[in-house]
Design a binder for these strands. Structure first.
Lengths: 263, 263
DNA sequence: CGCAGTCAAGAGCACTGCTCTCGGATGTGT
DNA sequence: ACACATCCGAGAGCAGTGCTCTTGACTGCG
């Protein structure tokens, strides 16, 4: 915009972008190693620079964190989308939900510090800027789309099972609005169940990543998948499995490919 | 212990205990104000002391944190136990579970920083010492007792509803062991459901405390109670209350008065 | 070629956890 | 009542942090 040097493809702009990326990469490495408290000086040392030089690229430590957070949400969103897309039978809603859940957990345990940044306790002075809310919704949208597809098939638990406790009147508008944002046309009751499953999902991932199941459950992966299957059944997605006589907890037969690493 | 000065009831010991308490109180205040990163120097300033003097009372910052964590678990445990005990109709299992859940959430939103310390992302360099595991189980035990009582009444969902997905063989010993520690005699299937409800509960509290529902659900209390009611139904605790024409989700008021309140 | 714009370095401020030493106060045993 | 052992607070100091500001060098573009 300055019309002089910093043209879009200018050399300076290119090396600057490379520097920015390298800083973020090293910062991620430090994040993974030392946990949440990221030291700018340490990052600078690793880059062979002096700490003040970093401020040419990031206005503050919080700015760096913000970019890392956005990248994290995007990574999770991408992982979720890829896992969903990898399920060939689009009508296998249980398989899709499980694949997404497993992929999200997989990413989380592989990047615990970044996950903590996204879904753990908020860092003290930091307030998430508006720029983070968009990426933050990406993983949710994937799950919402599955629910929407399930609803389109008319197979959700809320529509086939005995009704859950009725939604208090005060909640109905908000839940309806949430449904509109995430899964258009989804009835309130189904959206409520979806929110509960979403809560359970991230509760489970957090318990896993933060090691809250120590001395209780060691078979983490198996437990997580079982848990997810239970919630899938709670949502009623298993009824959607087209083939086979019995509905119920049929979701177990999800092809192993569901959890395969994204291509 | 040296047999000379520090007798159990000595004056020095008393004032020392008072100082320790005051330090912890001020530390809690700072924790609530500034978030997770607790500054020893700031605490010392507030006490009109110099930072090094604090080291007479706590070997390190982590030591202080440990004590705060233990206190926190104890506080939550106490809150949970009190909430459970306050339900006069011991047979109203749904009411008891809901009361405990609501009390836990209430404490959590009233002490967000302490809750984050207990259930949020682990603080970087800190590893929880063994002394914390005992208190940490207190809240869980309260919920486990409710499940055990429900099982004694033979009213759990796993025993009355169609079966959930079968527990993989690899998980069964661990789940059985967990059941033994928390709710003696509870069958595996019921324990699995309990673990899921527990996961959902703390997922919900964390979402609430960490403000992850911003712009989605504003009626936090109503949403939390609804959510809890759904999980109570999932557990099958509502079956303990004979549902008349009036809604079953009224859990707090259960007509069937039976067993004696325990001491 | 010269200038504008960019960048890294360095010094410095205020802050942190923590260590160590040095006096003064205090309670206890003789 | 005196002396000793203990405890406690203050202060200085070390190594580290985020961040600011100034200075000097480099460099791509007109």
């Amino acid at each position: 915009m300055a019309a002089t040097s910093t043209g879009a493809g200018s050399i300076r702009a290119r090396v600057r972008a490379e520097m920015t990326d390298e800083i973020k990469t090293i910062a991620r490495r430090h994040l993974a190693a030392d946990g949440a408290n990221l030291s700018l000086r340490a990052v600078a040392r690793d880059m062979g620079m002096v700490s003040s030089a970093l401020y040419r690229y990031f206005a503050s430590r919080d700015d760096l964190l913000t970019e890392l957070i956005i990248d994290g949400y995007d990574a999770m969103g991408e992982v979720a989308e890829a896992a969903d897309a990898a399920v060939k039978d689009r009508a296998d809603l249980a398989g899709r939900w499980i694949a997404v859940a497993v992929a999200l957990r997989h990413w989380a345990v592989a990047h615990p510090a970044e996950y903590a940044l996204l879904y753990g306790s908020p860092v003290p002075g930091y307030v998430a800027p508006q720029a983070t809310v968009g990426p933050a919704t990406r993983p949710v949208l994937v799950l919402g789309a599955i629910l929407a597809d399930a609803h389109a098939s008319g197979l959700l638990a809320s529509e086939t099972s005995p009704p859950a406790p009725p939604l208090p009147r005060a909640l109905r508008p908000e839940v309806r609005r949430a449904a509109g944002a995430v899964a258009a046309g989804l009835p309130e009751q189904a959206m409520a169940r979806g929110l509960i499953a979403w809560t359970e999902l991230f509760g489970a991932i957090s318990f896993d990543v933060f090691d809250r199941l120590k001395n209780t459950i060691d078979e983490r992966s198996a437990w997580f998948e079982y848990q997810t299957r239970c919630m899938v059944e709670y949502l009623g997605l298993t009824d959607a499995a087209p083939r086979g006589g019995q509905p119920a907890h049929r979701g177990t037969r999800t092809p192993r490919g569901a959890s395969r690493p994204r291509g």
